[in-house]
Design a binder for these strands. Structure first.
Lengths: 375, 375
DNA sequence: TTGTACGCGTTATCAC
DNA sequence: GTGATAACGCGTACAA
């Protein structure tokens, strides 16, 4: 037995040397040769649930380890038509919530045994170039947190590539989507602020091409109109810190004074607005002006801000996207698209004057932020 | 001519139907059939710089478009031994500079015609599991912004997979690295603070396994000792906001009072420290206490903070990593490893009492942050 | 359970 | 410039 082992090891060592000499890769055939079995036996040993005898399995694995053999995913995907890769298309915005989204999605996808092929879009128009790569690399599916045109969507269907769109609402209802109800979120925020007596609103919106931001804005405006309040002053923004300051300035100029409340399309803009109001204009927040954001990014929770904002259930949404995509991949027959919609959680914070939700409901229950605990 | 075109289109349409019926993929062979050329001609048309006549090229491309043909990257990589994929291994820390790093690296890699296969590590110990995938997927190279053990490094060499390690210094000098001189950065910060009269230091360090943080700490401590100042109080941290507050409290307790300056292993911890000092303890910063961080993440530039910190030249470093990796991939013969070291830029900010660098040098030239410009 | 033979879709090599 | 043919490394029906 000891002799046999030694023989196997010497055989493997020789084989390795010859492979290195020929500058080849280690293949299942090499392993088969060393283990003294057929190539298909080796293949079976690396397939979970295949029928292989204990002894064969052991011999093959020993040879594989000795040779540093690892199955070649490219060759495998050629024949199985599964690459085990998921493309993640994500716009590279100056939005702090994207990192969180990316981390969650990446983790969820990995947990399902798939790898992430990452495509970041500097501009939404880069989608064309990126999609060509997506087709080439034969990914099993795509999660897109970016705006796709109707033609793009059509191409996914033609090529039968499973697609889940994240946080973008599309007219096309045959696409699988995971979203937060941004329209309702906008309404909710306007309602809460109006209930606390705010009458004149300013809105620092997101970029025009962002469906998320426009949904939020539309919801807020709709509710403000319903309540018979004066129409809000709306200025554009680009999701970054500077846009908050610029936007506040523009709103004040347009209005000829400070509004009661400003709704910002993102937390970072809200923080920019807040800082400019407090540090540059000497406006008291929330005393003279209420400021609210969206997304509950980490800095919104910092003591200097404690922002009034709305949090999307990102981990749940990421898990939903991964689940949805997995299920489509596993049975592509299902024709009906699914639309999973989540609700945002209101974070009261301290940058807006608010009244408790209901007479009996204590504010704490409404979703108050847990204070930063020390020790 | 019109007839011919029509014929091609009808032929293509029929062919597409039969492909769909058989549930096959569109291959170069299908294109060849429709275009009336050989399969190898089709292949050549998709290889830049191959010798194909204008007419053949045109016919092939027309057929390809008609059939929605795209070359299969898996099959290609099988024969070319190039996957055109780069693995990015990155620890998923609560550190705000990781998103920036990820975005930069992703962009740089894409700009060089490679795709990014993303692996995020929740814990450093996940490296084993991740590396197995890296081998499987036959990536052309790896950029690792994570701690790799000596055995891991050895495996890269054995498998001849090009590797560039980002921001980790290794004893093993045969590994290609791109780093910032964190030791020098720590020294510089201590020097500047000491020059301004700070004597008693507190340090909120990073986690023990982080080479970056310990290098910074080592540099700072070394300089403090050189200058004959009292030994700093060092407490651990985990790079997050809370660690800054917890750390400050611990330092004050341990010292029985407030130190002159606190050096934090990251901006987020510095901000946590700052907020806790100002809002909870009523300590004036920088009046009573100077606070400095590392990394110059976006929030450090916000008006509420304007943090004294040090910025790594991230875009340059990312480009260097991508360049280095590309060059190794293109000529794997080169044996000598390269170590590209960059220097951090000092950002004066307003959370530390500082004296100008030199008698003649105006502070602005030293690397003052550009103020946030409105309009 | 095991081995044989074939195919996945492409590029590379060689004649023509 | 163009077309036949042989790899690339693996999974899988089929026969044994």
């Amino acid at each position: 037995m000891t002799t046999s082992k030694l023989t196997v090891e010497r055989c493997a060592a020789e084989h390795r040397a010859s492979i290195a000499r020929e500058n080849r890769r280690v293949t299942s055939y090499d392993v088969a040769l060393v283990a003294g079995v057929s190539q298909s036996a080796v293949s079976r040993c690396f397939k979970p649930g295949a029928s292989v005898s204990k002894t064969t399995h052991a011999r093959v694995m020993k040879a594989a380890v000795l040779l540093d053999y690892i199955p070649n995913a490219a060759a495998r995907s050629l024949i199985t038509r599964r690459s085990n890769m998921i493309a993640l298309i994500i716009t590279n915005q100056a939005n702090l919530y994207y990192p969180e989204l990316l981390a969650e999605l990446s983790q969820q996808i990995t947990a399902r045994g798939k790898r992430v092929l990452l495509f970041t879009l500097a501009r939404e128009s880069d989608a064309d170039r990126v999609l060509a790569d997506v087709w080439q690399f034969q990914v099993d599916g795509v999660i897109a947190a970016a705006s796709l045109s109707g033609e793009h969507i059509a191409e996914f269907k033609r090529r039968r590539v499973p697609l889940v769109v994240f946080n973008r609402t599309l007219r096309d209802h045959s696409v699988n989507t995971v979203t937060c109800d941004h329209h309702e979120t906008g309404r909710m925020l306007a309602s809460r602020l109006a209930a606390a007596g705010h009458r004149q609103f300013g809105i620092i919106a997101g970029t025009e091409d962002s469906v998320v931001a426009s949904e939020r804005r539309r919801g807020a405006c709709e509710r403000i109109a319903e309540l018979g309040l004066p129409p809000p002053v709306i200025v554009p923004g680009e999701y970054d810190y500077r846009s908050g300051a610029v936007g506040l300035k523009a709103i004040i100029e347009q209005l000829g004074g400070v509004p009661d409340a400003i709704i910002c399309g993102s937390d970072v803009m809200a923080i920019g607005c807040l800082d400019y109001a407090r540090h540059e204009l000497g406006i008291e927040v929330p005393g003279q002006l209420s400021v609210a954001g969206f997304d509950a990014v980490e800095p919104s929770n910092w003591l200097s801000y404690n922002l009034t904002t709305l949090r999307q259930p990102m981990p749940k949404m990421a898990a939903a996207a991964a689940d949805l995509l997995s299920s489509i991949i596993d049975r592509p027959d299902a024709d009906e698209a699914e639309r999973r919609v989540f609700n945002a959680q209101f974070i009261e914070g301290a940058t807006a004057r608010l009244t408790p939700v209901g007479p009996a409901a204590p504010t704490v229950a409404a979703g108050m932020r847990a204070p930063v605990a020390i020790m």
